[in-house]
Computed example of a mutant assay.
Amino acid sequence: MTVDSDPYHDIRPYNDAEVPASIERLINDQEFIDAIVNHRFEHSPRWLSSLLSPLVKIFLRFKWRKFKTVAQIQNEVGVFMESLLQRTSQGITVTGLDKLDPSRAYIFISNHRDIAMDPALVNFALHRAGHETALIAFGDNLLKKPSATELLKLNKGFVVNRSAKAPRQLLKALTQLSNFIKDSLTSNQSIWIAQREGRAKDGMDKTDPAILKMFYMAGKQQKLEFSEYMKSLNIVPVAISYENDPCDLAKANELYQRQELGSYNKSEFEDIDSIIQGIIGNKCRITVGFGEVITADFATPEALAAHIDEQIYANYQLYPVNYLAAKEDCADITQACRDRFAAKLAELPESAHPYLIANYANPVKNAR
């Protein structure tokens, strides 16, 4: 298929035929190689890092030469995730997935706490259970580095155009995205998408009805009723719970500056930094709770969004730190838990404490 005949060329993930060239571009991306060297050998002198760079390229070319298909990369990502979670968590619990049919395609709408780990955990749970992994929606704000684009599109990522502002440009982008999602489902390919744009930095998991309106654009073209079309999408709400959020201090500081100081200056590559911190940071226990396929009739996006929220709240795993932050009784709150939370608060200005507390306390309030 040529670029001209592929209506989704600019937003879709890479296919099997595009994998080798993408890997070659990554290996030849000096900035990407330097990032690996600087992370892996961060305490080495600079002169040694410059010598290591060609060796890393040789190593990657040898290690990645076997990857010819998207499925092979997904298997490798599964191995990486297994190792990563052993190093950065106390384990992952998956609930509700046994109720889903591995032969069907779904739209998984999850709460959004971590840029990279949220979809990675959903796909890891699917992969481990023998389901086909989902295509991953990510904003074009993450495409500032060429290597990020390559890695995301190699890993079944598709682009959500957030930079379109002009009404006609925005309508075109949303229509393309809606049709891409529908065509993916028709091809028996599941989708993961966050319930809102941007992470929930205050612990309030709320579905943005605009996401559902975007889904419906393809249905509207077919002159289908909202409720009828949405039932055809096999929407499954998913709740992702981290006992410890590696980015919690940064989130609290951002909210503090925005709301108390009036502004927050986001650095150019702050999203990339958040991705790295979310991946390598300690997450303690993790739970991924898959909800029920939505089959009821909902006449409006707002009504459907409220139902998605209800399922996410019902499947969200509350940990002792959540009850501690909410000042509610929980027999499992240990002194170690209190000390860890106190140490977090001590790293922030006192005026910023309420924002960190809210990040952990609000899921308890939502569960009522």
Rank of each mutant, 00 (worst) to 15 (best):
P167C: 04
G78I: 14
A210K: 12
L85W: 09
A367G: 04
A129E: 13
A352R: 12
L174R: 13
N141Q: 10
Q176R: 15
D114K: 02
Q30R: 13
I107T: 09
A336E: 14
D98C: 07
T2Y: 08
L126S: 03
E270I: 11
I276Y: 11
P7S: 03
A296Q: 15
R25A: 05
N253A: 01
M204K: 14
E42C: 05
D205Q: 10
D114Q: 09
F41A: 02
N161A: 01
D16T: 10
P119H: 00
N282H: 15
V77Y: 06
A125P: 07
D245T: 11
A314T: 13
T88C: 12
Q317V: 01
W47V: 11
K165Y: 03
E76Q: 06
V37H: 03
A239P: 01
T149W: 08
D4V: 06
Y106M: 02
D6L: 11
V77K: 04
V70I: 14
Q335C: 11
Q335W: 07
K365S: 10
I33M: 10
E18C: 07
P209S: 06
M217K: 15
E82G: 05
F158V: 09
N362V: 05
M217I: 14
W47L: 06
P349R: 08
T207W: 00
I193M: 14
V160G: 03
L121C: 09
L345W: 09
V160H: 09
S351V: 00
A361V: 05
E328R: 14
E260Q: 14
A164Y: 10
Q176G: 02
S187P: 02
P320G: 04
P246F: 04
Y242T: 11
S227T: 12
T69E: 02
A326G: 11
W47C: 01
I279K: 00
S184I: 08
A210R: 13
A71K: 14
D309S: 01
S227Y: 05
L177R: 11
C284T: 15
T300F: 01
S241G: 03
K182C: 08
K153Y: 02
A325M: 12
K231C: 06
K206L: 12
N161S: 10
S351C: 07
P209H: 10
V236N: 04
D245G: 08
M81Y: 05
K231S: 00
A305M: 07
A343L: 10
K156S: 06
N253M: 14
S241Y: 09
V79R: 14
N123Y: 02
C247I: 14
I280N: 08
T2F: 00
A342D: 15
P146V: 05
R368K: 13
I73T: 03
F298G: 05
S232N: 07
Y256A: 04
V238P: 07
Y360M: 03
F226A: 06
F59V: 09
F298V: 04
V159S: 05
I240P: 03
Q317N: 04
A367K: 15
K99C: 02
K223N: 15
W64N: 09
Q311L: 06
S187T: 09
